[in-house]
């Protein structure tokens, strides 16, 4: 539609037509109607192109991941993949849960109680993507640095998360996200 909308009423006024009164009105109406309809068509034609970049049906269909929690001992963490992203699963101990419950929520950059971030307190399930600019924080492996708050530490720009995945220090604006999941049995979850 290289020329779409090229003919507008005022541009055409100088085209050398002696149209007056009723005829000129009819002419202007024609130009406007054609231009408007052409614009609508061009806009409608753009959508399929844009929408083709959205996730395709097969991508959307792959949106659940089943995880067996059985083998994960207390204090251990595993990383699974959901929608191409790392999901952190940590089996927390009683003491750690109690410590986290005592945190003064009001002092947090993104205030949220630990209890609100879990379905079962011993299982913390989070998207392992730093809310700053998308790096994967350290803290899953026993040898990793866990940052100043004993949770996770993002090495890219120095964000510190606590044992509930809440942002405590550094540039990240939000807590690590909790994905939608449900317990299908006592020891298995389905993410997504």
């Amino acid at each position: 539609m290289a020329h779409a909308g090229g003919i507008t009423a005022h541009e055409h006024a100088g085209a050398g037509e002696p149209g007056e009164g009723h005829d000129a009105t009819r002419r202007d109406f024609l130009y406007l109607a054609a231009t408007a309809l052409g614009a609508v068509g061009a806009a409608a034609a753009v959508w399929p192109f844009i929408h083709s970049m959205n996730p395709a049906a097969d991508v959307l269909a792959l949106s659940t991941t089943d995880v067996d929690l059985g083998p994960v001992a207390e204090g251990q963490a595993i990383t699974v993949v959901w929608r191409g992203k790392p999901i952190f699963v940590r089996h927390r101990g009683k003491q750690e849960i109690e410590e986290l419950a005592k945190t003064d929520i009001a002092t947090l950059p993104d205030p949220q109680a630990d209890a609100k971030r879990v379905k079962k307190p011993e299982w913390l399930i989070m998207v392992g993507v730093c809310t700053h600019l998308g790096c994967v924080p350290l803290g899953q492996k026993p040898t990793d640095s866990r940052g100043e708050f004993g949770g996770w530490f993002c090495p890219c720009h120095g964000s510190h998360y606590d044992g509930s995945g809440r942002i405590r220090k550094g540039p990240a604006p939000k807590n690590l996200a909790v994905p939608p999941y449900e317990f299908t049995t006592d020891s298995t979850i389905r993410i997504g």
């Binding site: 003919i7 055409h12 085209a15 050398g16 037509e17 002696p18 002419r27 024609l30 130009y31 109607a33 054609a34 309809l37 052409g38 068509g41």
Partner: peptide
């Protein structure tokens, strides 16, 4: 089809003179 009909009318108008 509608757009083309309209464009035909426009073309006729433009070329009328």
């Amino acid at each position: 089809l509608v757009l083309t009909a309209l464009l035909y009318a426009v073309k006729r108008k433009v070329w009328a003179a």
